[in-house]
Structures are given as structure tokens and as C-alpha cells.
């Protein structure tokens, strides 16, 4: 059996373990795993869809730029959750472990493990791409902050409002007209 065939055959199992492990990173992962509802369960559904696509792309040996949408689907969510940068992108590296585990568990495929170098290299590249997306997301988040300030909300805390007036009073009565 060739590696690509084995992966195709084990696709369901690999994905299932991989998605479960990724969703296990949430405190109450049960609902995220259980509900297939895209609208009611955005975290679970998007991560499921994103990881599935990434794996399919790996099987197809897709070009690097093809991964962007699927990676974004997963990373954009994790970039605003309570994760460190490494925690946010580690699921992609975990795929290496999952694939090895699944192949090793079956006598038919255990010998294929030595052929994994290329796939693992590819997975690492995907993880790095995910990290790029992570930083883009964070950058975007700060842009959003800046835009919010620019759009006028900042006046809430920095106009001649009570607090700044009080501040001025402290400076001395001459400053107030």
C-alpha cells in the first residue's frame, strides 16, 4: 500500500482524532464537538470544516496559497480566544502525531511511517503558514482598535468631561474658563 492510499483510507479516523484533540483545548468542548450546527455552534463547526479542508489539501498536495482560507477559518477564531500564540497554532503540528498514531495502530500501514518525512515537512509548512495568519489576525485586531478610536468613541474618555474637568480643577482654577 502506498502512503497516499493509506491516508485516504484512514482519512475519517485521522480527522476524527485530530478534530477531537483540537476541540479538547476548550474548557467545555462537549457542545463544540456534538453540535453540527453551523449557526448555533460557530467554534466547533468552523474548526471542523477548516481542519477537514486542510487535510484534504494535504492529500491533494495543494499549492501553499490554497490553504489560506481553511487556515484562516481556524486560526482567526483561536487568535481571539484565551490562547498563547503557540497554543493557537499547535493543532496543525499535532496532525503529525495523529497520522503516526493512526498508521502505527494498523499492521497493514505501520511500515509506511518511514515514508512520512515529506508529509511532515508539508505539515510544518502549513503550521508556519498558520502562524503567519495568526499574526495577521492579531495585527488586524489592533487595526480594529485604532479604527474604533479614530471613529470617535475615544471621546468617551478624553473630552472635557467630568473627570478631565476635575483633573483641570486640580491643576488650579485659572485653567478653567
Amino acid at each position: 500500500m502506498k502512503l497516499s492510499e493509506a491516508l485516504q483510507e484512514k482519512k475519517k479516523q485521522i480527522l476524527s482524532i485530530w478534530i477531537d484533540r483540537t476541540l479538547n483545548s476548550y474548557t467545555s468542548s462537549d457542545f463544540f464537538k456534538r453540535s453540527q450546527d453551523h449557526i448555533a455552534n460557530p467554534v466547533g463547526a468552523n474548526i471542523r470544516a477548516g481542519l477537514t479542508t486542510v487535510f484534504e489539501l494535504l492529500l491533494q498536495e495543494a499549492a501553499p496559497e490554497d490553504y489560506t482560507t481553511a487556515l484562516d477559518q481556524v486560526v482567526r477564531i483561536r487568535a481571539v480566544q484565551d490562547f498563547t500564540p503557540s497554543q493557537a497554532v499547535v493543532p496543525f503540528l499535532e496532525l503529525k502525531w495523529v497520522v503516526r498514531q493512526v498508521l502505527a495502530d494498523d499492521k497493514k500501514t505501520s511500515s509506511l511511517i518511514q515514508d512520512l518525512a515529506k508529509l511532515e515537512c508539508e505539515i510544518e509548512r502549513v503550521a508556519l503558514a498558520a502562524f503567519d495568519i495568526y499574526t495577521t489576525c492579531r495585527e488586524q485586531l489592533h487595526q480594529v482598535r485604532v479604527q474604533e478610536l479614530k471613529s470617535g468613541s475615544y471621546i468617551l474618555t478624553d473630552t472635557p468631561c467630568v473627570s478631565s474637568l476635575l483633573r483641570e480643577r486640580k491643576k488650579g482654577p485659572d485653567n478653567i474658563n
Binding site: 479538547n24 483545548s25 467545555s28 503557540s86 499547535v90
Partner: peptide, 15 residues
């Protein structure tokens, strides 16, 4: 991954 990710929730199971 555990050593990379220090968070209590990651990789440690769900609830």
C-alpha cells in the same frame, strides 16, 4: 505540545 502549551485547558481533556 504540552510543554509548548502551558495553558491548563489545552490537551488536558474537556470539562
Amino acid at each position: 505540545a504540552k510543554s509548548v502549551a502551558q495553558g491548563p485547558s489545552l490537551m488536558t481533556g474537556s470539562y
